[in-house]
């Protein structure tokens, strides 16, 4: 009898420990998402170990060997118009893209969660906050970012600020929507009968219920953030040369489109693969985290 109970407990325990793994397994069942995860993982590895993966520095010029094609002279992906190693610039660019993406999404999330929680929980603040959010929504995103950079000046830090401000409204809406439904639940009333303050209820009891849509939002937002960073840099508003930023690299490469197409195509592929990977993983996460979604529909 006791062994049966023990076995059951053991099973329960192992099941519980693997809850995250269950989500992961659901995610990997989706073929596209699995490919996305592999791509994201390789980009992360490339970014973290960039200096060790490349035998040339990203700024190292070699004017005797410019615009070399891929594979020539030990340059895996060739060189650009100053003879800088494209592979090295690509992996160092991944670093920049991920740092900008992660930090702008993080800042955007913090702002959006704060506003969304307040708007959803306090009826009086709702109208005010959501009108401001609507106002932000009314601007085309890239235009808003350009406006902010025009005010603050061109630098990567300002790109991060611009993109995070642009992430706030979407996040605020998602959080507000979740809070509106969660605050009506009986367990929130039960928490109030225990004497919990509003702040405690919001942060410790309502916020954890919003995590699923937020994870999906953050993943999707990473794609947009990376794309926007490159777009801004391409337009000359973000990273300045000689910084190895993908958008800036395309901008430099487009002048040599005919003689050395790899200069524009390689960073372009980098952007495309990264954005694609984050989008499909976001899609997959949405399905894996939402038990109500039927995969067959």
């Amino acid at each position: 009898m006791s062994s049966v109970a023990g076995l059951k407990e053991k099973q329960e325990k192992s099941w519980k420990e693997h809850r995250l793994i269950t989500i992961f397994r659901d995610l990997v069942k989706n073929k596209l998402a699995a490919i996305g995860i592999v791509i994201i993982a390789s980009i992360f590895i490339a970014a973290v170990f960039a200096p060790w993966l490349s035998s040339y520095g990203p700024y190292e010029q070699d004017l005797s060997g410019t615009k070399l094609a891929a594979g020539a002279d030990g340059h895996i992906l060739g060189t650009d118009n100053y003879g800088r190693d494209m592979w090295s610039r690509l992996v160092h660019g991944a670093r920049l893209s991920l740092v900008v993406g992660l930090s702008s999404v993080a800042i955007g999330l913090i702002g959006g969660i704060g506003l969304g929680l307040l708007a959803g929980y306090y009826r009086k603040l709702d109208g005010l906050i959501m009108r401001v959010v609507d106002l932000l929504f009314a601007f085309p995103g890239i235009l808003l970012a350009m406006l902010i950079i025009a005010m603050l000046g061109t630098s990567l830090i300002n790109v991060i600020i611009a993109i995070s401000i642009w992430s706030i409204p979407g996040c605020a809406r998602i959080v507000r929507g979740s809070v509106l439904s969660i605050k009506q639940q009986e367990y929130i009333l039960a928490m109030k009968t225990l004497g919990a303050s509003d702040r405690r209820i919001l942060l410790k009891h309502i916020l954890p219920n919003c995590t699923a849509p937020l994870i999906v939002f953050a993943t999707m937002r990473m794609a947009t953030a990376i794309l926007s960073t490159s777009a801004l840099s391409y337009l000359g508003l973000g990273a300045q040369p000689p910084t190895p930023e993908w958008g800036a690299m395309i901008a430099a490469g487009q002048d040599f489109m005919w003689e050395a197409p790899h200069m524009a195509i390689i960073p372009g592929l980098g952007i495309m693969l990264t954005v694609f990977a984050f989008n499909v993983v976001g899609d997959g996460l949405r399905d894996a985290l939402d038990p109500n979604m039927d995969m067959n529909v």
Binding site: Y187, L189, K192, T193, L194, G195, A196, R200, K204, P208
Partner: peptide, 29 residues
């Protein structure tokens, strides 16, 4: 509330927060 007067509810299914552990919710008060 919770200290001098407490309350329990009809639906034990909905009166506990589904995303927090029993221990977390017990410790709160």
């Amino acid at each position: 509330r919770g200290n001098k007067v407490s309350m329990i509810f009809q639906e034990p299914m909905t009166a506990l927060n589904p995303v927090l552990t029993i221990g977390f919710q017990l410790r709160e008060s």
